[in-house]
């Protein structure tokens, strides 16, 4: 399946078209296209080895693509753009022999932030992440979760316009997961564009505006999260109502949990028709909605279907 991204607009922060990259005989990326819009959280999804990391590395000009075009922040990747991008790779680490403060300062200086600014911004982040009392500790004295927080601070301290973050929640407990989630949503509210690669599909549903799903180096799914869920709906509705439901010709009850039922609709029947029938029969309806599949279901279906 090949998909071409729509034509670029001013709103586009990243545009990737027909990207391909091989390492020797291994085809890491074969045909990937998508666009990331300004101010959105964009999900870059795919099973292990699908080509996500290679795609990110090509966007950041760490690898050169064999084929295809990439536009980042309004044109080809250039050195000066690196200061406007925050990147947290999947294979990440910190300088273990430095203190938290030294480590954050060094990485921020490499992004071109002035020392005085680093100090005030770092102090604010340390406060927010509960790291103030640990800031003079060496990195290797910190727990994995705390190191993860230091990494996220290093990714955001230079106020990037674009954040690319690979598995932002790995190694975090539920409290810190919530903390990072809120931080990313806060960044989006401030206008930062975020590309997020994650395996946690509920996070995608909760946070992402749009997504691309890559499998075997190819784009297999691309678009808005709601739009994708709707397009994968199995022509079914979810009804919560007390008592028995009247029989509607062609409609089959596929599952029932207490008062919650899923009804499969025949081809050509609108959900509106079912609702009208139920109302006409005087059924006390508590909830009526399209039975949208979870992103988890869609992920498994699309990836398993591709095999």
């Amino acid at each position: 399946m090949s998909m071409n991204a729509a034509s670029s607009s001013n709103n586009t922060v990243i545009s990737v078209t027909n990207l391909a990259k091989s390492f020797g005989a291994a085809k890491a990326v074969q045909d990937v296209s998508f666009e990331v819009h300004a101010g959105e959280i964009f999900g870059l999804l795919g099973p292990n080895g699908a080509g996500k990391t290679t795609t990110i590395r090509m966007i950041l000009d760490i690898f050169k693509p064999d084929r295809g075009t990439i536009s980042v922040l309004g044109g080809p990747m250039r050195e000066d753009k690196k200061a406007r991008i925050g990147y947290l790779p999947e294979e990440r680490g910190l300088y273990k022999d430095l203190t938290v403060e030294q480590c954050v300062t060094y990485l921020a200086e490499l992004k071109g932030v002035a020392r005085a600014d680093i100090k005030t911004r770092a102090a604010r982040f340390f406060e927010q992440f509960d790291l103030t009392e640990h800031r003079r500790k060496k990195v290797n004295e910190l727990s994995k979760g705390m190191q993860q927080k230091v990494q996220i601070i290093s990714t955001l301290i230079h106020k990037p316009a674009l954040v690319i973050i690979d598995e932002p929640f790995s190694g975090l407990d539920p409290v810190n997961t919530r903390l990072v989630q809120d931080l990313l949503l806060e960044q989006r509210a401030q206008g930062t564009t975020i590309v997020m690669s994650t395996h946690l599909m509920y996070q995608v549903e909760e946070m992402c505006d749009r997504l691309v799903l890559i499998d075997h180096g190819k784009t297999v799914l691309y678009g808005g999260v709601d739009e994708i869920r709707r397009s994968h709906a199995d022509r079914a509705v979810r009804v919560v109502a007390k008592g028995e439901l009247p029989a509607i010709p062609g409609v089959i009850e596929t599952s029932r949990k207490g008062n919650e039922r899923t009804l499969a609709l025949p081809h050509g029947m609108e959900s509106q028709h079912v609702l009208e029938q139920l109302v006409a029969a005087g059924v006390p309806i508590e909830q009526f909605e399209l039975a949208l599949p979870t992103m988890d279901d869609i992920f498994v279906k699309v990836v398993a279907g591709g095999k």
Partner: peptide, 13 residues
């Protein structure tokens, strides 16, 4: 080995 290299090359060449 300490996996800092990829973070650094996102800031410098």
């Amino acid at each position: 080995e300490n996996r800092t290299i990829e973070i650094v090359v996102s800031s410098v060449t």
